[in-house]
Nucleic acid binder design. Sequence first.
DNA 1: TGCAACCATTGATCTAGAACAATTCAATTG
DNA 2: CAATTGAATTGTTCTAGATCAATGGTTGCA
Lengths: 235, 235
Amino acid sequence: MDISELKSICGGCSIRELCLPAGLNDQEVLLLDQHMAHRNPVRKGESLYRTGDSFKSLYAIRSGFFKTNILHEDGRSQVTGFQMSGEILGLDAISTDIHICDAVALEDSMVCEIAFERFEELGQLMSNLQHRFNKTLSREIVREQGIMLLLGSMRADERLAAFLANLAKRSAIRHQSGSELVLRMTREDIGSYLGLKLETVSRILSRFHDQNLLEVKGRNIRIIDADGLNALISK
Amino acid sequence: MDISELKSICGGCSIRELCLPAGLNDQEVLLLDQHMAHRNPVRKGESLYRTGDSFKSLYAIRSGFFKTNILHEDGRSQVTGFQMSGEILGLDAISTDIHICDAVALEDSMVCEIAFERFEELGQLMSNLQHRFNKTLSREIVREQGIMLLLGSMRADERLAAFLANLAKRSAIRHQSGSELVLRMTREDIGSYLGLKLETVSRILSRFHDQNLLEVKGRNIRIIDADGLNALISK
DNA sequence: TGCAACCATTGATCTAGAACAATTCAATTG
DNA sequence: CAATTGAATTGTTCTAGATCAATGGTTGCA
């Protein structure tokens, strides 16, 4: 099986499109794919895994959109992230071998299952794969520090501006428009992620609309004044 | 050089006392120590590294106490963690090879420098070391998710109770009393970490004192009613 | 040993965002 | 194509924690 064959099997999208294999040669990518590729569809609303499930695999998102949701014992819950294609789910479970959050598909999605034991073996064979993976884990640490900063010291409108700017940036990286956003999550999900109530999210979106920063039509958002939005964040 | 010799060099504390080498045999621990051990003192108030410094090494804390501090461009800053002996500093810099926070000693401390390039090589030689390290990185992700939950959905008194309980637990793990705490950081540091103002921290400590949960004398805190404190957290 | 500089406490007031509540809008579905 | 259901908007009121301000304690340094 060669690379082009692999691509056709995958419906034209090779495992290369994940951030993980950057820096690997073709043979190494093949090896990676052979040992780990195991693709599953996840329907909108379904959970890829749930809190308490035993951890066996990481998942690379090939297409679609997810949220991860931590459940506190007392019923409180909080969205810890939104993940889109190319990103990895399950990194937090490595620490205890048990999933500590739910991963819920917010639209019909396709994921690639990566058996973690096999992956660690491959990491031993390919030092550059292991190196990339260390960076991936560290990047997740940094991402979460950004959220901590946001939750700990930004006002509601700054949080929302930062959230939209981040979403736009990530969309732009993946072919999609960086100014036309389709929010896959509810206002409540956004609020949970940003430490705000859904009414506050709604109000601030309306305000941004009035200030001609955005055009808001339900879950369709067009960013009109990206500079104005960015000015909000670091003021 | 054998293990006992190593221990004497280290002043009686072997590299084994870090969480990282768990599961390694004596030879492997020796190898680890030979290649990486490079111990430095850091005086109270000094920075081990600063934002923008290029990343070359991780640091294992042998003794002492640190805070990590993120600086936002607009002058805002936030404490992202407090680290004590046995814990690792610098994990967030792996992602970009540049430190994105300051690590400041809050008391005279001793750290063990671990050249990260060498460490990655050793990880290739010892799969169990690499496995432990993956877990260490993942554990940091989980820790930060805990803070996100705290910042996003807990009230001020719950945050402080959670903070004190966590500090007590970590102290207890390391020989120290789990009920007699000496806070190494200022009220402002605590507030920054918990997303609160220093006045609020002070007020709530006083309230805990009045409610006979704590005895507060400046930075000396004795936990009187641990159950009462824990009840606060998950209510 | 006393002065500076910082740190902590406590009080009074103010405000951003929560809570509560009432419509409106959109998407399914029988 | 109603009718049901869940999501979003908008208004009003309330409160936890911020802000502003004054005072008291510690610690280290000259």
